[in-house]
């Protein structure tokens, strides 16, 4: 095996590890802004194909996931714009997500959260989706291309709205024993 082949195999291996580790998170990030799973999957796959092409460079970044999030968001926005151009007349209001009982497990809690975020403006949803994953405010501002002040402002707005949603769903009170 030549040095170039070895390097290619290493890149393939590290890219596959990255993908397996993060693909669900990238999909979840986009699902916080878009309810169309097919569109989300398409944007994720397109992003990762591009990421693979630039993996030699991107893998050297301190946090390659930041680049993937940023690019995936643009891919999704482009896909959404294309879809709107093709089907503007048939676009319907997205039905609001409802939950009749408090989430019973972590998966239900995630789905409830994603459903609520999709009821908010996309930029606000994107900020909060990154914030709950532990990204700092300056990192979020850089990934999403917005002002630092906006990230702080959106985070508090989203938190307020989520509390309203939880209250509307009837489980806005603290759990016992906390």
């Amino acid at each position: 095996m030549t040095a170039a082949e070895r390097r290619l195999a290493e890149l393939d291996a590290s890219f596959e590890d990255f993908c397996r580790e993060n693909i669900v998170a990238v999909e979840r990030f986009l699902r916080s802004q878009c309810g169309d799973r097919e569109l989300v999957q398409e944007a994720v796959q397109e992003t990762l194909i591009t990421a693979r092409d630039k993996w030699e460079e991107i893998s050297g970044y301190e946090k390659p996931l930041a680049w993937v999030y940023k690019t995936a968001r643009y891919k999704l926005m482009n896909e959404q714009a294309r879809q709107r151009r093709e089907a503007t007349a048939t676009l319907d209001e997205v039905p609001s997500d409802r939950l009749v009982a408090p989430p019973a497990d972590s998966r239900e809690a995630q789905e409830w959260l994603l459903g609520c975020l999709r009821r908010l403006p996309e930029r606000q949803a994107a900020v909060f989706a990154l914030a709950i994953e532990g990204w700092t405010d300056p990192e979020i501002a850089r990934i999403l291309g917005m002002a630092d002040n906006t990230v702080r402002s959106y985070k508090s707005t989203v938190r307020r709205r989520l509390k309203e949603f939880a209250g509307d769903a009837g489980f806005g009170t603290p759990a016992r024993g906390r």
């Binding site: 397996r20 669900v24 408090p102 989430p103 497990d105 972590s106 998966r107 809690a109 995630q110 409830w112 959260l113 709950i132 938190r159 989520l162 509390k163 939880a166 489980f171 806005g172 009170t173 603290p174 759990a175 906390r178």
Partner: peptide, 22 residues
């Protein structure tokens, strides 16, 4: 259960076998 409980519950989610396979 309030918002913080739900956020904590959502954050505790680990990929399922199905999600890992996918």
């Amino acid at each position: 259960m309030d918002l913080d409980d739900i956020l904590a519950l959502a954050a505790s989610h680990k990929p399922t076998v199905f999600e890992r396979a996918s």
